[in-house]
Design a protein around this nucleic acid. Structure first.
Lengths: 144, 144
DNA sequence: AATATTTAGGACAATTTTATCCGAAATAGA
DNA sequence: TCTATTTCGGATAAAATTGTCCTAAATATT
């Protein structure tokens, strides 16, 4: 469904968000360890997410990554997916047709748009804040 | 969502099904051309689908691929996806956790199972027969 | 200013997926 | 039986994704 990069990205953001709720800035190594992701690859992804202003980074000693707690409720999973995987999941044809729409649909179009709009809706309405709190309260895990 | 191989596979099966409804057996080259897929790669996929008994093949002159018209209503898209992409789309965790379930869920689990069960349901309840007819009647296309 | 820490970013490597090529096996027709 | 046709299957190649490594840049502390 999502690329590995995107899975790592979502987990990293949720972990950083959880720590930010406790006013803790986290370092790359800690993120990688607590999300079960390869360190250097995670660095790449965090770099991208920083550039996209989804997370904030601070260099040097006592530096690391953090997310503004006020902004957190307004950041959706959809934004992370879009930043990393692009909009294929929202607009791409199930069968890979370069253009597929209601007037010239692939055979699955009708069935597919329904599922996809629900997926889109879900991703847009799920905030980082919600997921971070699930993690904080022990209701969910990031690594296994 | 699906791999390229899977997209090619679904399109190929739908095309073969449509021709089978007209009692026409189709050759590899015709399948590839009419689905906009690379010939040799399509051959690989058709080989797999033949082994899985989703389609039937005949070697030699006047040979090609076909699908039993009686069986066609009982073949779902889900079977093709499973044969080519495996069951990741049905059972894999959205964030890639090796085991993720209601008792030890990833933060997205709850939201994700809902979407996924609808996807699963859709794939299981969409038959090759239905899609082949959409194509035959000109209501849909396979290449663009 | 010097040092230690930490992110940033580019080059490179490994793996997986996608795609091609070619000869073998099967089979219909002459 | 010979030939042409067509799928089958293994080897190989190309491209994309995933992953590593190393140096530069920034910055807090001393």
């Amino acid at each position: 469904m999502f690329s590995k990069a995107c899975e790592y990205g979502i987990k990293a953001v949720v972990y950083i968000a959880k720590k930010s709720l406790d006013n803790k800035r986290v370092k790359l190594n800690e993120v990688a360890k607590n999300t079960g992701s390869p360190v250097a690859y995670t660095a790449k992804i965090l770099g991208l997410l920083t550039k996209e202003n989804i997370i904030h980074s601070v260099k040097g000693p006592y530096g690391g990554f953090e997310i503004d707690t006020n902004q957190m409720k307004n950041i959706s999973i959809s934004q992370i997916v879009y930043a990393i995987d692009g909009d294929d999941i929202y607009n791409g044809c199930a069968l890979g047709l370069s253009s597929c729409n209601a007037t010239e649909p692939c055979p699955m179009h009708e069935h597919f748009v329904k599922i996809r709009s629900e997926l889109k809706h879900m991703l847009q309405n799920t905030s980082i804040y919600e997921l971070a709190n699930k993690l904080k309260s022990g209701k969910s895990i990031l690594v296994r």
